[in-house]
Nucleic acid binder design. Structure first.
Lengths: 221, 221
DNA sequence: ACACAAACGGTCAGCATTGACCGGAAGTGG
DNA sequence: CCACTTCCGGTCAATGCTGACCGTTTGTGT
């Protein structure tokens, strides 16, 4: 986590530290703007205003707007990655709970991911990357790496009791993509996420497909 | 389509017709720009250049850029709606085919929808609408109406043999949202859509969940 | 025929954004 | 202690976009 960055008195920081602070400040502000204003309105001016940084300072670290956005991609990825590691992973006592409850919990936790600023920042970057080759080139390997980490985190959430199921990859992939598709519609139709009509569907799928069975399923990823 | 400018006597090449042509030209160009350049780069200048209309002509019909984008939403919706009606609906001979083949076909047809310019134009508008209230207000009812039509078209695609299945709403909703979530990733990672790794998963889900069964499923929508 | 208003074509000012530029301050290595 | 590099503050020209504001043409009603 980063410090809220009040403006007390710079005690004695080395130059490289101050420089790193500047980058952090600017990148955080960039993602905030992306989340709150959208890609089109995320200008270098609004970023520097929100970061509380002078123009020279911003341009020194990120000479071009596109470079800044590219750096924001990486920053977003690494931030989200550290958040994933802080997930409530499968604790031992969970194994004692009923299997259905554990599945519901995993679905809920996964769904809550799509309510975070990260998701909307990512959507803005994905959308922009479609028509901007530079962004796209940066985003693609980053998202690939992230995809692996995300799936590992989901596996930890479901626990080994379910990840070993032959149909588990199918369920994981279906939940992940379906939730992304549903979450996207919240961009123009905001409603109560905890009461989304798809929530019982996802729970049902998980319960139905992950019950003890011996039918093989096609592999995913 | 219909305009308040109701002059019940259009002899030939009436002015209102030419006016409608202008609107059509401009709106088509707008959606093309949205698809090829993205929301940020879709300026009124590029639109008028692509539509081959003068600045005065564009500004006469759409005095503000935002108004133009709002009109583009409605135009996109109506266009996609007419495309949906032209779908290869369930022909009688389909009923003679094996059920599994028909399911695979329905999945393929549905998936092909997400490869069209419409989808990317919609994504651009959805993303922009998140941070622009005017767009959002227009988009929401439009997408609601469209959602109903889309589901009707999908129903026609699957045919009554499957739409009557208790788990059909679940399958339809899962396929639709999952495909949307997968298609979104193509914005930064373009690959062969016909060989997407999720395709066999979707087919498997449809076959598995729509086989004759008597277990009830939670309702969707 | 005639007045009129809609449907344009074309220009321009105002504004926002970007990135170059330069001066200065603050660490850093010698 | 002294260059010297990095970091940064502030200004500015160039550019692109929007929408107002003309003028002009051309159907349309009477």
């Amino acid at each position: 986590m980063a410090e809220p960055t009040s403006r007390p008195r710079p005690p004695r920081r080395s130059r490289t530290e101050r420089s790193a602070d500047s980058r952090q400040l600017i990148l955080d502000a960039t993602l905030e703007c992306l989340h709150e204003l959208g890609y089109a309105r995320t200008t270098t001016l609004t970023i520097q205003a929100r970061a509380g940084v002078s123009r020279g300072r911003l341009l020194h670290h990120f000479p071009s707007r596109e470079g800044l956005l590219v750096a924001a991609c990486q920053h977003l990825a690494s931030t989200h990655l550290s958040e994933l590691r802080a997930w409530p992973s499968g604790s031992p006592e969970h194994d004692l709970e009923p299997a259905a409850d554990r599945l519901d919990l995993a679905v809920d936790v996964l769904w809550s991911t799509f309510d975070q600023p990260y998701f909307w920042g990512a959507v803005e970057l994905w959308t922009a990357a479609r028509t901007e080759p530079t962004l796209r080139a940066t985003l693609r390997p980053e998202e690939r790496r992230l995809g692996i980490a995300v799936r590992q985190a989901i596996d930890a959430q479901f626990g080994p009791a379910f990840t070993g199921h032959p149909r588990y990859p199918l369920v994981r992939e279906t939940l992940l993509t379906s939730m992304r598709g549903v979450a996207l519609t919240y961009s123009f139709d905001e409603r109560d996420r905890d009461r989304d009509t798809h929530l019982p569907l996802w729970r049902y799928i998980a319960r139905l497909l992950l019950e003890p069975a011996d039918t093989p399923a096609p592999s995913a990823r």
